[in-house]
Amino acid sequence: MILTGLLCGALLGFVMQRGRFCLTGGFRDMYIAKDNRMFYALLIAIAVQSIGVYSLIQLGLIEFSTGAFPWVATIVGSFIFGIGIVFAGGCATGTWYRAGEGLIGSWIALFGYMAMSAIMKSGPLTPLNQSLQSVQLPKNSIAESTGLSVWVFISIFAAIVLWIFIRELRKPKVVIPTMKPKRRGLAHLLFEKRWHPFFTAMIVGLIAILAWPLSEATGRMSGLGITTPSANILQYLVTGDQKILNWGVFLVLGILLGSFIAAKGSREFRFRMPDTKTGISSFIGGNLMGFGASLAGGCSIGNGLVMTAMMTWQGWVSLLFIILGTWTASYFVFVRTNVKKKSLNSGTSITTV
């Protein structure tokens, strides 16, 4: 049964690679390019998962407990994680699937992410992690906090997402010139045709639903998750403890495998070595991701996709601060850097306040 994690991860990695489902680029583009499409795609995936998972809960097929809300750790960790994904060039899941494309910079970021996650969860920084996470509010569920049924919030959220979906599809389409298809039929659809982000999001949402019963069948009472399984891989390599090899570990390894298959099939796989500056940035970003995600109790998937779908304070507060962290880093890495370059090229001076 544990091998179902490998299958689920392979599906997720394949879909994310082919659909270019990159939340780092999506959050960054909201600020720099004023392009919200990837953020809207994330909302679609959240809505699909929320409806599906709570339907499974209501049918008694899976169990879920929201627990308490570690608000300080969530805010601080999510903001740091948002900064980290900009330096790393991809979020936790994005780093896994980009590594499957042969991007060496993503492998560097991935090592930093795994190492720092392990240090936070079972190493010298564990006391700090536990101390900040101990500052909690008793109720994490938005429904329990308000006394309303969770379906009220799911219905309102789904209605808003449906309105956004219809509005975006009604906008005039920008025709992008494409080369004549070299393949036909299923091969063209899977490996050559450009995937719409909303279509990709719906499949991601369905995979996220599937992850719950598959994971719980092995005793892991959760859905998609990236940070803890990533730390578990390094912990296993160091300790050799086979108990660490759970469903989640096979999930993240499956993402790597699925992305590799997609990249090879679409002829996008190739080893790309970063320059020194990019390599250092990737490693720093990976460490910031591992620190922030461990502290916040989840990454852009664990909190931003799963805990938001479960209608928890942790999920939505985390998503907000991940975005704010991404925007903050984007300002210093992209906006301010470009301003300095333009000023130097024009011969004008920069006055800092």
Rank of each mutant, 00 (worst) to 15 (best):
C8R: 08
A10H: 09
L12W: 11
L12G: 04
Q17F: 13
R20P: 07
C22M: 00
L23N: 03
R28N: 00
M30F: 15
Y31D: 02
Y31K: 05
A33K: 14
A33M: 11
A33V: 13
A33H: 14
Y40S: 13
L42Y: 00
L43C: 11
A47W: 03
A47V: 02
S50Y: 00
I51K: 07
S55I: 10
L56W: 08
L59V: 00
S65V: 02
G67M: 01
A68C: 07
F69G: 06
W71N: 03
F79V: 05
I80A: 01
I83E: 03
I85R: 01
A88S: 08
C91S: 03
R98H: 09
G100T: 06
I104E: 02
G105F: 07
G105I: 03
G105D: 03
G105S: 10
F111S: 05
F111I: 10
M114V: 06
M114Q: 09
A115C: 09
M116L: 12
S117G: 09
I119V: 14
K121A: 13
P127I: 11
Q136A: 13
Q136F: 10
L137I: 15
L137K: 14
L137V: 11
N140E: 04
S141D: 14
A143K: 09
S145G: 13
V150W: 13
V152H: 14
F153S: 09
F157S: 12
A158E: 10
V161G: 02
V161D: 10
W163C: 11
E168D: 13
E168P: 00
L169G: 12
V175L: 12
V175Y: 12
I176Q: 10
P177A: 14
K182M: 12
G185K: 07
L186W: 13
L186E: 09
A187E: 11
H188Q: 13
E192P: 02
K193A: 15
H196A: 14
I207H: 02
L210N: 08
A211G: 07
A211Y: 04
A211L: 05
P213C: 10
S215F: 03
T218Q: 08
R220K: 14
G225I: 03
P229R: 02
P229G: 08
S230I: 05
L237Q: 09
T239V: 08
G240T: 02
G240D: 05
D241E: 11
D241R: 01
I244N: 05
N246E: 11
N246I: 01
W247M: 02
G248A: 08
L251K: 05
G254T: 10
G254P: 00
L257G: 05
L257N: 09
S259Q: 02
F260T: 10
I261G: 04
A262W: 06
A263T: 03
S266A: 11
R267I: 08
E268H: 12
F271Y: 11
D275S: 06
K277I: 10
T278W: 01
I280S: 04
G285D: 02
G285V: 00
M289P: 04
S294C: 08
N303A: 07
N303E: 04
V306H: 01
M310Q: 03
W313K: 00
W313G: 04
L320N: 05
F321D: 03
F321S: 02
I322Q: 02
L324I: 01
L324E: 05
Y331K: 12
F334Y: 15
V335S: 15
T337A: 15
T337R: 13
K341R: 15
L344Q: 15
I350S: 13
